[in-house]
């Protein structure tokens, strides 16, 4: 159960990063500004994901029972869901001419 919870957090973080960085790369590539813009736009958006996932990961690795730190996973899931859904909806709009 503990391992599964860790894996869930890992997957959730990975999906959040993937969705966020795909949309930001799309924006900066459409803007024609290269990767500098991705870094500038991405940094503040990445901070909350990193903060929550590291806190969740350290909690699990320190042997805290997963149900006691599940609120972090819940929040990570909300963040992933929000970013993923929005990215999915907005992606076509970015490429439309």
């Amino acid at each position: 159960m503990q391992g599964l919870a860790f894996l869930l957090g890992l997957e959730s973080t990975a999906i959040a990063f993937a969705a966020l960085l795909s949309v930001l790369s799309a924006i900066s590539s459409r803007a024609g500004a290269g990767f500098g813009l991705t870094a500038v736009l991405g940094l503040p958006l990445i901070i909350p994901i990193v903060l929550i996932s590291t806190r969740y990961g350290t909690d699990i690795l320190n042997g805290i029972l997963w149900i006691d730190t599940a609120h972090h996973l819940l929040f990570l899931g909300a963040l992933t869901g929000g970013i993923g859904t929005l990215g999915f909806i907005l992606f076509p709009y970015l490429w439309r001419d």
Binding site: V23, I27, P48, H71, H72, L90, Y93
Partner: peptide, 24 residues
């Protein structure tokens, strides 16, 4: 168009960070 797309992201982040996260 790009700014509008980014703004939607920003607002969702605002709602999650300031209204959902601190309650959890």
């Amino acid at each position: 168009r790009l700014a509008a797309a980014y703004n939607l992201f920003a607002f969702v982040i605002l709602v999650i960070l300031l209204m959902v996260l601190p309650r959890f």
